[in-house]
Computed example of a mutant assay.
Amino acid sequence: MASAPVRRFAWRTGQRHRPGLECLVSTGRQHGFESLAERWLLLVLDFVGGFDEVLAQPFRLRFTWSQGKGSHIPDFLVLAAGASWLLDVRPAGLIAEEDEVRFAAAAKAAAAVGWRYAVVTGWRDRVLAGIDALSVRRRPMTDPLGLESQLLAAVRRHPLQFGELVDRTRVPAVARTHAVRLLWQRRLAVDLAQPFGDGTWVYPAGTV
């Protein structure tokens, strides 16, 4: 847990990538990223949850292959009690032959220590827009009016469209924020492949 990123997250004029820091509610701290693609992955991880820690650029991997020696710095190590993941982020259209060699080496190293490995190459249409919309309510909230229990009870009977769901509560304008909060917590569910709005169907968690 005392790990520090192998490279510094530097900012300068003229650079082609966009580094920054993303605060995850799951860990309660900020995590460095080197591109917007990496930032999106961190947001998705925060939505999925179920992990203990995320380490950016956790180590430098050195390896040999048929063409000689090589090295690679994986983007993230996600530590969890069930299964830890070593992750690289690279848009599908930007993966070169040398990248495939580095990813293969990272996959073998991960397997050797019992981690899973994946390369995140992109997302289905609308998924990121939906998660980004839900993320505005990821901070802790109080519910003095008991609106969340009303929302959960209404959907428990049968699925409802988002606009109809909030209208069934005592204070619909306030219930909207709590409904989004329940969706972020995955206590309610929607199809993230569809545009999110008042016409979005909302289901009990675990039924989509």
Rank of each mutant, 00 (worst) to 15 (best):
V25F: 07
L128E: 01
D167T: 02
V180T: 10
G114P: 03
S35H: 02
A104V: 05
A37E: 11
A96P: 00
V127C: 11
R18T: 12
L45R: 04
A4T: 10
F162W: 10
L24I: 10
S66N: 10
L36F: 01
R137V: 11
R137I: 07
T121V: 15
A96C: 05
V25G: 04
A81F: 00
S149I: 07
S66H: 12
E148G: 03
T207R: 15
W123R: 02
P19Y: 06
L24S: 04
W85Y: 14
L61E: 01
I73D: 03
A109I: 03
E38T: 06
A193F: 06
G49F: 02
D167F: 06
Q150V: 02
G82T: 04
G206C: 12
G49Q: 15
V54L: 06
L134V: 09
L43A: 13
R29E: 08
V120Q: 06
V25E: 14
W85V: 11
V78N: 04
W115N: 08
V101H: 09
A205E: 06
L87A: 12
V208P: 04
K69Q: 10
L87S: 08
A173C: 09
I131S: 05
G130Q: 00
A189Y: 00
A109R: 15
L45V: 03
S84D: 06
M1T: 12
R12P: 00
K108E: 08
L45K: 03
A104T: 06
Q15L: 12
G28M: 10
